[in-house]
Design a binder for these strands. Structure first.
Length: 424
RNA sequence: AGAGGAGUGGCAGAGUGGUCGAAUGCGGCGGUCUUGAAAACCGUUGUACCGCAAGGUACCGGGGGUUCGAAUCCCUCCUCCUCUGCCA
């Protein structure tokens, strides 16, 4: 959530920044927010006064009872009862005002960073770098779903039977490749200082709210109705929420975590030719890195995370590019996001395989996560990135390294797969 | 899943209707003493909100209730422990 205190002192720049995202009537919304907050403050002042009086009377009664002079009590009791009615009224008003404020607040996305370019769609994203030295330029390259079928790496039919569309069954060398990638990604992250954890894949409401999936994007998550739990759409949710409602001492920074989890997404709507094979799934594997920093260091952390992700992709000998997302394409909670896309030469398409974001104080404000130093406390900055999402990486590897009778496995994976190529 | 017990400040642990934001101990921070350290002694030590400030308000697992007044009584939910059951 954006912070009202900051909104008050940066009103115009907030309006401008949010307009960049293409939100309509944002000025009116923000103004309403400030007015409601003014209202909230005066109600709070009023309520506190009433409570002060009530407390004073209650104490007086206590003292009178002690001294044994019971006659004066009934007057005081009547007065206190009257006060109580008033108190009830004001405190309800205050509560309602707070609810009103939150209703608006939770629907306002994060303020885009200054570097975020204007734009409405992915066409306006800025290409930061492109590395296509490895592009396989052969003619007649097959898309990965054909390769998968030919080499029997994934059984989509059985996935359909067991669960439904978008739930693949990885088989034999396909399963081994999957496991190899997970282990490789986890080991590399550990080498880079990310502490490995294995979180739950079901989360509660508070967690969904903390990272920003709820209430805005409830539709993306699978819900267990009876239990009020959600299947995680990304490990970002359980990992970041470990630190919900905590105060971290500055010396303990940076907090760096990595986790492998399956991810579950409903992805309602789009289903067709462009989401064939591994391009979009309801369940997929991902290794996620999460970092917590203070304001002074979060920019640098974002850069480091990007460099880490880039190195990882590079090591898999596939072509990739890096994009700076424009305001219109930026995620709800993020302030600045870099996407990494890998090239799938069989489809002649770029596939997003990692999204590295700095949420600044947006998530920490929702979950009350603070950094403390000798003198003061401040909301933490949270960051995360995929390192990496498996399916599209697999697609790119298969399409890039395909041959007629074999698929070459990138060298860094050899010790994890136990084989250098997949044969027919 | 059933029966019983318990949840208090960073930790341990008192408090069963009034002056309790909460004794005491440990830890932390500051100081005295010391060449230095330890010990001892003195002081200090939660979070959020309102207020220019003085100060005030709320919080004893969460929510609701009774009462002039609740850490304390009632209801409900959650979590943990013990026993029984079930299970990878």
């Amino acid at each position: 959530m954006i912070e009202i205190i900051k909104l008050r002192s940066n009103r115009n720049s907030y309006i401008k920044s949010l307009e960049k995202r293409g939100i309509e009537k944002i000025e009116k919304k923000l103004e309403e927010l400030i007015n409601l907050d003014d209202d909230r403050k005066s109600l709070k002042t009023e309520l506190d006064k009433l409570l002060t009086d009530s407390n004073r009377i209650a104490k007086e009664i206590g003292q009178i009872i002690k001294s044994g002079d019971d006659n004066k009590i009934s007057d005081l009791k009547t007065k206190s009862t009257q006060l109580k009615e008033e108190t009830k009224k004001i405190s309800e008003e205050l509560k309602n005002r707070e609810i009103d404020i939150k209703k608006i607040l939770v629907n306002i996305p994060n303020i885009p960073d200054k570097r975020v370019p204007e734009g409405n769609s992915e066409n306006d994203n800025i290409k930061i770098l492109k590395n296509d030295v490895n592009i396989n330029t052969k003619e007649n390259l097959k898309p990965h779903w054909e390769i998968i079928k030919k080499f029997k790496l994934i059984d989509f039919d059985n996935g359909n039977k067991i669960a439904g569309a978008g739930f693949p069954v990885y088989t034999n060398n396909g399963a081994k490749l999957q496991r190899a990638l997970i282990n490789y990604f986890l080991d590399e992250a550990s080498k880079n200082g990310y502490v490995e954890i294995q979180p739950p894949v079901l989360v509660n409401n508070d967690s969904g709210f903390g990272t920003g999936q709820l209430p805005d994007k409830e539709g993306m998550m699978y819900k267990i109705e009876d239990e009020n739990l959600f299947l995680i759409p990304t490990a970002e949710v359980p990992i970041t929420n470990i630190y919900r409602k905590t105060i971290i001492e500055k010396e303990k920074l940076p907090i760096k975590n990595v986790a492998y989890t399956p991810c579950f997404r409903k992805e309602a709507g789009s289903w067709g030719a462009h989401v064939r094979g591994l391009n979009r799934l309801h369940q997929f594997d991902k290794v996620e890195i999460v970092q917590i920093e203070d304001e002074a260091r979060s920019d640098k952390a974002l850069e480091e995370m990007c460099n880490y992700v880039e190195g990882l992709i590079k090591s898999l000998e596939i072509s990739y590019r890096k994009l700076l997302l424009c305001a219109g394409d930026l995620g709800f909670s993020s302030s600045i996001t870099y996407d990494f896309e890998v090239y799938a030469p069989g489809q002649k398409r770029w596939l997003e395989c990692s999204s590295v974001s700095n949420f600044k104080t947006y998530q920490s404000n929702r979950m009350n996560l603070k950094i403390k130093n000798e003198k003061s406390k401040a909301l933490a900055h949270t960051l995360n990135g995929s390192a990496l999402a498996l399916p599209r990486i697999v697609a790119a590897i298969l399409e890039t390294h395909q041959g007629d009778n074999e698929i070459k496995i990138p060298e860094v994976l050899h010790k994890y797969t136990g084989f250098n190529k997949i044969n027919l």
